[in-house]
């Protein structure tokens, strides 16, 4: 019998239920890391639309949905495994498991079920290569990054960043069913962008990673070394991002966007490199926070430019002709 809306002993039941940490639908949805999912959806969509083979709009919609679902499943499994870390860090304390809204077992169940569902459905909707790549991405994010690298090496975010970089490759595979160089250029863009993005975050989150005993670069090599690393990786990223402008996925629009944003990004990295902890503490890490926000715009704008180039191609305008 359903107990919704009716009870013969309201006071006693209400009192006992009041202490039950029962999850709402939103809590389960939060397990899927919806904000990370937006990045997955957008980059996968660009990978798919940049492909030279057209895909049926409905199949394309389904493919993006299942890629997002696979990303969400990874998020749930990550929260299951990292519940101890999440409970310590200020940034992640409010997640459903540390808050006691969702049990780790529930997160594990949802993560495993959605992983299987997303891989099978993407394979059926598009092709087995795309499904296999999605399965490999989930494996890489959970087993390689979350379970192995994250707690064992300061290179965690460098190697683990590959997991977040795979979606455009999956999108491309969903449309074409075969590998090509173009989606791997998009992969490299996200792969090289990830370290400076997360190291900037680690700088202004201060002791979060120390408290959680996660060997981020700030913890193992110090904050000075992290500032140097941000600059070095930003230089390498700028070379890659601008160089991509002269390839098959680039074009005049992309090159203009890349030149402006890499100039701004490099300037931000240099500012971070020139500062020390006293200066950063004095203005509450204003430069580091600004660099982090810019990094979000940076990646979105680069992929938007790739999309513009791809959408202009049928009219003879995109790319280098």
């Amino acid at each position: 019998m359903s107990d919704i809306g009716y009870t013969s002993q309201p006071t006693a039941q209400a009192a006992s239920h009041a202490v039950e940490p029962e999850a709402s639908f939103g809590d389960f949805f939060a397990l899927l890391k919806p904000r990370v999912m937006t990045l997955v959806v957008f980059t996968a969509l660009v990978g798919m639309l940049a492909a030279p083979v057209p895909i049926h709009p409905f199949v394309g919609f389904c493919a993006i949905l299942f890629i997002a679902l696979g990303g969400g499943a990874s998020g749930a499994l990550n929260m299951w495994w990292d519940a101890d870390i999440d409970a310590v860090m200020r940034r992640t304390k409010g997640r459903p498991i540390p808050k006691g809204k969702v049990t780790p077992d529930e997160a594990l169940g949802i993560g495993v079920a959605l992983s299987g569902l997303s891989v099978i459905m993407l394979s059926l909707a598009t092709n087995w290569l795309a499904g296999g790549m999605l399965a490999f991405t989930i494996f890489f994010y959970i087993i390689v990054y979350t379970m192995w690298l994250k707690r064992s090496t300061p290179q965690n975010i460098v190697i683990g960043g590959a997991a977040g970089a795979f979606p455009p490759v999956i999108g491309w595979l969903a449309a074409t069913g075969s590998f090509a160089i173009e989606p791997w250029l998009m992969f490299l863009l996200t792969f090289m962008w990830t370290p400076p993005h997360f190291w900037a975050l680690a700088l202004f989150m201060r002791n979060d990673y120390d408290d959680a005993k996660v060997p981020m670069l700030t913890v193992t090599h110090g904050r000075r070394a992290t500032r140097v690393h941000i600059l070095v990786y930003t230089v390498l990223l700028a070379v890659l991002a601008i160089g991509t402008g002269f390839t098959a996925v680039g074009g005049p629009v992309y090159l203009a966007v890349a030149l402006v944003l890499n100039g701004l990004f490099l300037a931000g990295a240099i500012r971070i490199w020139r500062r020390d902890e006293t200066m950063s503490e004095a203005d509450d890490f204003r430069v580091e926070r600004r660099f982090f926000r810019l990094s979000l715009i940076y990646l979105a704008a680069h992929f938007a430019a790739i999309l513009v180039e791809a959408l202009l191609k049928p009219y003879g305008l995109g790319g280098w002709g």
Partner: peptide, 12 residues
């Protein structure tokens, strides 16, 4: 009146 828990369960 349905308890807050019941509302959450209905939403789910």
């Amino acid at each position: 009146e349905p308890h807050e828990l019941h509302k959450r369960r209905l939403g789910r």
